[in-house]
């Protein structure tokens, strides 16, 4: 990586980290997600700040082309995240449905009492 590109990525990673920390600080992210994103932010920051670290990791696991490792990890992470969200969505939908049913039943009970 050239010096300029390195700087740009370091700044971007720093911005991402600041954004994540800010969201966590404002409690806009649930605690369980904050741990996840803080980890990601920290990893990004380390990768951007220490130029040789990605090369070193790639070397250790036997990947010749370092960007491939980065993309593979990123893709795997996003895939897991999407699956996790699908799971959470399914659970939420079940709960919302049950709540809607409860609401309709309570509403009906209320109407009955007012008559």
């Amino acid at each position: 990586m050239t010096g300029t590109a390195h700087l740009v990525f370091a700044v971007l990673a720093l911005l991402a980290l600041v954004l994540i920390i800010n969201l966590v600080r404002l409690q806009a992210l649930k605690a369980k997600y904050s741990v996840l994103w803080l980890t990601v932010g920290a990893l990004l920051a380390v990768a951007a700040a220490v130029p040789g670290v990605l090369d070193w990791v790639a070397d250790q696991v036997g990947v010749a082309y370092q960007p491939a490792l980065f993309l593979l990890l990123g893709f795997g992470f996003l895939l897991l995240l999407a699956m996790h969200f699908s799971y959470e969505l399914s659970r939420l939908e079940t709960r919302v449905r049950t709540l809607a049913e409860e609401l309709a039943l309570l509403h009906h009970e209320l109407d009955d009492q007012q008559d």
Binding site: R97, A100, E101, L103, A104, L105, H107, H108
Partner: peptide, 22 residues
């Protein structure tokens, strides 16, 4: 007649389940 009002559209299956539950 008795009317149960769902706050939003759940689809026919959801509506039926509520009816059966009642």
């Amino acid at each position: 007649v008795t009317c149960l009002r769902l706050p939003f559209n759940l689809g026919i299956g959801g509506a039926l389940r509520l009816g059966f539950r009642y």
